[in-house]
Write a protein that binds this DNA or RNA. Structure first.
Lengths: 331, 331
DNA sequence: CTGAAAGCGCTTACAG
DNA sequence: CTGAAAGCGCTTACAG
């Protein structure tokens, strides 16, 4: 393996001079030496040892992306898209990405400390552990979709509540009077709760209600939820699904039982994934801009990396309803 | 930050004794000291510095996953699922995952060398650069879906050709006589070419053909391909799409133009992603077992990590046709 | 079972 | 503009 020392020997200078050239501190080295050293670096194919650099400079150039979940969190298109955009942005800035899946706060700290990560990005729900994570890790930490009440948390989120409101309003505008909410998770995260809250509040405001037995969340497969939904006394016609994936499964389950969408059941999803355009009917959904979200995540992270004294930021991106064909007009 | 030295001082022993305990070399330390040191480690929250470890031991415990593509390769569900399974397996074994997106071989080497990665996994097409990558990186390298003719390459792939054959046979069995092939990529990777070859060969064997103008690949959106397809003179009724994503888009485009699937056009996909069950009609497809594939990738990698002299392995997993509702019977 | 010495490949901080 | 010294936090290899 080629080291600074090898280059130095070949060039007849000290390792410091080579180090300066490698780190592009050109003002500190004579032009003559710069040229000579650069040539030798190229010739020998020198690649700096990041561990050594990290150890001596206390700067690892590693960004860790911590994703909640211990199964395969990348089976969620949302997580996959976010991670992809993040890796891209991290690379662009000359940093490296480590990926770690975990639910446990202690593992987070272990991971970040052992590699001396310079910053970390969190995808998924870490509400319970945010305080502890922040206490133990004095590096820029960017959370996403957090509803923590702790101050001083960098967070990039979206207006989940408004998403729920928009869904309700769209259903109402189209004449619906009986509603249901379907959540994909066993555990109702704050994100899902907010979407539900917005939906429910907007319904109430318009004089409608969301009966408890029309909120489907726990321990059911999509098909079981649909069974329950369809056997309800006050049959809902307007179903708000908390995510596009959930909406897609819901629609498939409805069709399988012989129902028509949107004629028998209208459905609105959340996220605006590509799949929305490719199912039938195309899915009316609440759109969040994942690329923009990732961009903010990266900007806030690298701003804080440059200046650790920057105040924390809580960026809430807007959402909008994208109308497609999964909601019918009712008289 | 807590270091070995701090623990050593507190315990009244040398750093070596602490190092032994940290590395669980218990047979080399007295029970008394093990207990004392472990307690102090816990008390002070000591976390070993991976960079220092890597530098002195020449063992980084880093596995790099290199994914082909410079846009967002994780927008492909296949890549996302594979990466997710890999991260999981790497973590299970106490290693760490770095992710890097690139098309360029020089970047690969730079990345692997600078972090002294102990092994690397390649997702996507690296055919052109495999030789160079292998020459420059003397660590276990696992490629996936490679058709390189270079010997001595670890590769985990699937029987793409057979997938094409199965698709053709299924169409023929259902009475179809006019066929088309739709590829998602501008550039026809070997993987896609093999799927096409199997399809075409099986058609020929049964006395059918695949006209050149029924092979759609270059520089067209899904909709444009469909336009071309539907305006063909010898109208195909059986469309083999090289991936499920491509099939999904094809079906959506067909429906948009007012055609019925499978009655007007029957479609077979490839991969067996979750989405197959959630579109209408549910998608008949060639199934590959992504979890199993990832498992082999990890096994071959870590086997080679334990024993660098192991012979290279080229594992080809089987595929099978999963029948759903996107292929109609024709008389 | 224990530890002192040397070194991994860099950078920081300083002297010239 | 240049370099010698010290050190980052570990492990290897050896001596006892």
């Amino acid at each position: 393996m080629v080291t600074l020392k090898d280059i130095a020997k070949e060039a007849g200078v000290s390792v410091m001079t080579v180090s300066r050239v490698v780190n592009q501190r050109y003002s500190e080295v004579s032009e003559e030496n710069i040229a000579k050293i650069q040539e030798i670096i190229k010739k020998l194919g020198y690649i700096p040892n990041s561990s050594a650099r990290s150890l001596s400079s206390k700067s690892s150039r590693i960004i860790s992306v911590i994703i909640n979940g211990t199964h395969n969190p990348l089976s969620s298109p949302y997580n996959a898209l976010m991670l992809g955009q993040i890796v891209l942005g991290v690379q662009e800035r000359g940093y490296n990405t480590m990926v770690h899946f975990t639910d446990e706060y202690s593992e987070v700290t272990k991971h970040l400390h052992s590699w001396k990560a310079e910053g970390a990005i969190f995808l998924g729900t870490f509400e319970e552990s945010i305080r502890q994570i922040q206490e133990d890790n004095k590096i820029p930490l960017i959370f996403t979709d957090s509803y923590t009440t702790i101050r001083q948390v960098n967070n990039i989120g979206i207006d989940d509540y408004k998403g729920g409101v928009l869904a309700a309003e769209h259903f109402i505008k189209n004449g619906h009077t009986n509603f249901a909410f379907i959540s994909p998770h066993l555990h109702m995260s704050q994100v899902i709760q907010q979407r539900l809250a917005g939906f429910e509040d907007a319904l109430k405001k318009a004089g409608f209600g969301l009966p408890a037995d029309c909120i489907f969340e726990p321990y059911l497969t999509a098909e079981e939820k649909i069974d329950a939904l369809c056997s309800n006394t006050a049959v809902p016609t307007a179903v708000f699904a908390a995510t596009d994936t959930c909406a897609t499964e819901t629609i498939a389950a409805l069709k399988k039982k012989g129902y028509r969408v949107p004629e028998d059941y209208s459905v609105i999803g959340f996220d605006d994934l590509d799949i929305c355009k490719n199912i039938e009917p195309t899915l009316t959904t609440i759109s969040q801009n994942i690329k923009l979200k990732a961009k903010y995540v990266l900007n806030v992270l690298f701003d804080h990396l440059q200046n650790h004294d920057l105040p924390t930021q809580n960026v809430i991106l807007d959402v909008e309803l994208v109308e497609r064909d999964s909601v019918a007009k009712v008289n």
